[in-house]
Amino acid sequence: MTDDPGRRAEAEKRGGARRRTVSAFAQAGAGFLSEAWDRLGAGRTVAVIRGPETGLVMVRGRAGGGGAPFNLGEASVTRASVRLDGETVGHAMVLGRDGERARLAAAFDALWQVEAARGAVEREVVAAVEAAIASADRDRRAETEATKVDFFTMMRGED
């Protein structure tokens, strides 16, 4: 990394944006990614570099969110790496065993790195996935709120 603070800040900003987009691609459904690829990536050459490969990762948890970490269990993940148009390399790791979804997510990671395509990918894929996730979170919160029970303690006058 460079010693120039401006360049370092710009690199960190791009890294944060890429983490956000890779997360969105990994959470998107295979059908959605396939339809979006037909619109945005048609005509591009996608060469598989690695995978899709399925394996296991250990999921760790913390008691109460802040306690000592413990092994919760294993989860299946699938990863893939692709080269787009012989130039840009994209990577993806998705929960589950869907190799096509991992390949498409990696292809979108590579497409997002192409400056000319980045805006369209942000608008049509990343924003749509983030909106769907936010909507599902709101629905889940509303459902949970509907079952909320307020407990209170009454002081008895016998003391």
Rank of each mutant, 00 (worst) to 15 (best):
A42Y: 11
L33I: 04
R44S: 12
R118I: 02
A11P: 06
G61C: 01
V149F: 09
M58L: 08
E87W: 02
T153F: 10
G51S: 00
R97L: 02
A107W: 02
G67Y: 09
E74Q: 14
A36P: 02
R123D: 12
E124D: 15
R103P: 02
G29Q: 05
L111I: 03
R138E: 13
I49K: 11
T2W: 05
T45F: 05
D3H: 06
R83Y: 04
V48R: 03
D98V: 14
A136F: 02
F152L: 00
R141I: 08
A42H: 15
T54C: 10
A106S: 10
N71C: 07
S34L: 11
A30Q: 13
W112K: 11
A106W: 06
G90K: 01
A68E: 09
H91D: 13
K13H: 15
G61A: 15
P52N: 05
A75Q: 10
S135F: 11
N71H: 10
R97T: 14
G51N: 01
F32Q: 05
S23A: 13
A28Y: 03
V149D: 01
G55N: 00
A127M: 06
A117G: 06
F152A: 07
H91P: 02
A110R: 01
A42N: 11
R44Q: 12
S34V: 02
V114D: 08
R97E: 07
A30M: 05
L111M: 08
A75T: 07
G55P: 05
R7C: 00
I49D: 15
A30N: 12
G55L: 01
G96C: 12
M155I: 10
V126R: 01
R140A: 15
R20L: 03
R79M: 13
G90T: 07
G31A: 08
A75P: 03
G96W: 08
V77G: 04
A24G: 04
R103M: 09
R7K: 11
L56E: 11
R83D: 10
L84W: 05
D139Q: 14
F151R: 12
L95K: 07
D4Y: 03
E100L: 07
M93S: 15
A142H: 02
V149L: 14
E145L: 12
A107K: 00
F25L: 03
D4M: 02
R156F: 07
A68L: 12
G157C: 08
D150N: 10
L84P: 01
E124K: 01
G86R: 03
A102F: 07
A132K: 02
A17R: 14
E74D: 11
T78N: 04
A110K: 01
A11D: 07
V48Y: 00
D159W: 13
G64I: 08
A102W: 06
G65V: 09
V94I: 08
L104C: 09
A26F: 03
T2R: 04
L95A: 13
V126Q: 00
S81G: 02
L111T: 01
L72W: 11
V114F: 00
R8Y: 03
V94N: 00
E35C: 04
L72T: 12
P52I: 06
D150K: 06
A131Y: 05
A116M: 08
